[in-house]
Design a protein around this nucleic acid. Structure first.
Length: 467
RNA sequence: GGCGGGUUGGCGGAGAGGUUACGCAGCGGAUUGCAAAUCCGUGUAGACCGGUUCGAUUCCGGUACCCGCCUCCA
């Protein structure tokens, strides 16, 4: 069997991955808070952990992997969005979840085994909080329930900080009812305008971290194999998850391997609305960038390194996929190439896997290329179609194509190619790709197609010859 | 202030203490009315200063610069 190695954030080393139960490999990944469209930064963990999911299924069997990715549908950002727009919370979260599913499907991500919604797990959270109170790891204050950080000796093990370090220059929220500035909220009261659930501590809502502890426990048990997410979640979110889960159920280990993907920049800068480089997955899809292209760009950098979304990478990935799809067109998948599997098994080294795909393409091994690419969620039938020739319904393009063919036939006879060249140059300028075969001409719209420029291509007239 | 990551050829981006990464672009060739696409071939590297070593881009130490987290964030 293939040996998988993964870099565990907890130990900061690459370790051989040995599942607790090979018949049921269990992975939990932090999913979206559903108040807005998924942006490119959200897309990275979706694609990275989907690729790991595919590898685990390949190695352990598709029926022996359980992948949980939660949906956070109770959160103060959602409440704020509801207050701004006047829309019901449920309408916002349902709509955002639908968008998220559309976008992740476009990126070729398989649906996780379970996608629990936080609001369906409130009783589990209350149970956890009650257990923490009973064991002295939490306390009630001013209507809140807070986790007592100093009660957990291993606090800081994941992020490599000690509680004493954190006090120094840290910007921790100081609330008068906290025993210690590091303590964080497990449960907070809701006024009548906010969503709330009845609890032993009054009507309220959960703090940020408890939902993941509750959902992971409900679906994966008190010990499971892998917990993943973006690097920005490492502290405090994941540190707090560990503290809650381990203290509430000391007999469990919670997650054994922690994986964190690095962050994403856009054109070299941190993505932000004020810089005007905030890119959602939907923006790209609407601009005609295929989800498969986004996926290849994201997998082109190892998950533990920062990456940069650039238009140049987009264009390169598009070229690569066109070539691969053309080469593998009409072929049935064969067996995955061992080099691709080995690259993925080595801490999910997707750039090395992609290099191996290039080698398969170079060797003309289409069936292996298809099967191996599928391990990275690429070249699948579901993601295809975008690379096909120009749509037949483009009457404008069809007309121009007829004109070009006619002009070319004339030119062949007269040996005067000026009109052909004029048409071709105009088409290229309008963003159309022009391919001339021996007798045929193919026009396919490029990504930067300019419809107006196309319409401006004037009827042919005899070129003025210099005297 | 604390914790962590990075610096590779024109660009992107890996692995390995000694032998070609790979891709894109460029260049040369085949092909083409010219191109595109395709195919063949090909040059360029590892921030800086020390150390270990027969040998370091790869290990160790230092310097510079960049980035992330510590506050909602994938």
């Amino acid at each position: 069997m293939t040996t998988i190695r993964l870099t565990n954030s907890l130990t900061r080393r690459k370790e051989v991955f040995v599942p607790l139960d090979p018949a049921n490999v269990r992975m939990y990944v932090c999913g979206p808070t559903v108040y807005d469209r998924a942006h490119l930064g959200n897309a990275r963990p979706v694609v990275v952990f989907d690729t790991l999911f595919r590898l685990l299924r390949h190695v352990h069997g598709a029926d022996h992997v359980t992948y949980v990715r939660n949906i956070t549908d109770v959160d103060d950002k959602i409440n704020a969005r509801a207050a701004e727009t006047g829309r019901p919370i449920r309408a916002i979260t349902d709509e955002t979840i639908r968008w998220f599913h559309e976008d992740t499907a476009a990126l070729g991500a398989l649906p996780p085994t379970h996608e629990p919604r936080a609001t369906d797990h409130i009783p589990g959270m209350i149970d956890l909080i009650a257990a923490l109170l009973a064991r002295g790891h939490a306390y009630e204050a001013a209507g809140h329930v807070l986790f007592r950080v100093r009660s957990f000796g291993e606090y800081g093990a994941l992020s490599g900080r000690s509680p004493d370090d954190m006090i120094a220059g840290a910007r921790v929220e100081v609330a008068p009812w906290k025993e210690d500035p590091l303590d964080f909220v497990l449960w907070k009261p809701s006024d009548p305008s906010l969503p709330g659930w009845d609890s032993p501590w009054g009507r309220g809502r959960p703090g940020w971290h408890i939902e993941c502890s509750a959902m992971a426990r409900a679906l994966l048990g008190e010990s499971f194999d892998i917990h993943g997410g973006g690097l920005d979640l490492l502290f405090p979110h994941h540190e707090n998850e560990i503290a809650q889960s381990r203290c509430a159920h000391p007999e469990g280990r919670f997650a054994r391997v922690w994986l964190h993907n690095e962050m994403l920049l856009v054109e070299g800068r941190k993505m932000s609305k004020s810089l005007g480089n905030f890119v959602t997955v939907r923006d790209l899809l609407d601009r005609g960038v295929p989800g498969e292209v986004v996926r290849l760009v994201l997998l082109g950098t190892h998950y533990r390194s920062p990456t940069d979304w650039t238009d140049r990478k987009r264009a390169e990935a598009e070229t690569t996929l066109r070539r691969w799809r053309a080469a593998a067109s009409g072929l049935a998948p064969g067996a995955p190439d061992p080099a691709v599997v080995a690259a993925l098994a080595d801490d999910l080294n997707t750039p090395a896997a992609i290099a191996a795909l290039h080698a398969l393409h170079g060797a003309g091994n289409g069936p292996a290329l298809l099967a191996s690419a599928a391990l990275l969620g690429l070249l699948t039938p579901e993601l295809g179609g975008w690379e096909e020739a120009a749509p037949a319904d483009s009457t404008l393009l069809a007309t121009l194509r007829e004109r070009l063919i006619a002009a070319r036939q004339d030119a062949r006879r007269t040996r005067d190619f000026a009109e052909v060249d004029r048409l071709k140059a105009a088409l290229l300028a309008a963003g159309v790709e022009v391919r001339m075969g021996r007798d045929d001409v193919e026009l396919r719209p490029g990504p930067a197609l300019d419809e107006d420029a196309l319409r401006r291509i004037a009827p042919g007239r005899r070129p003025e010859h210099a005297p």
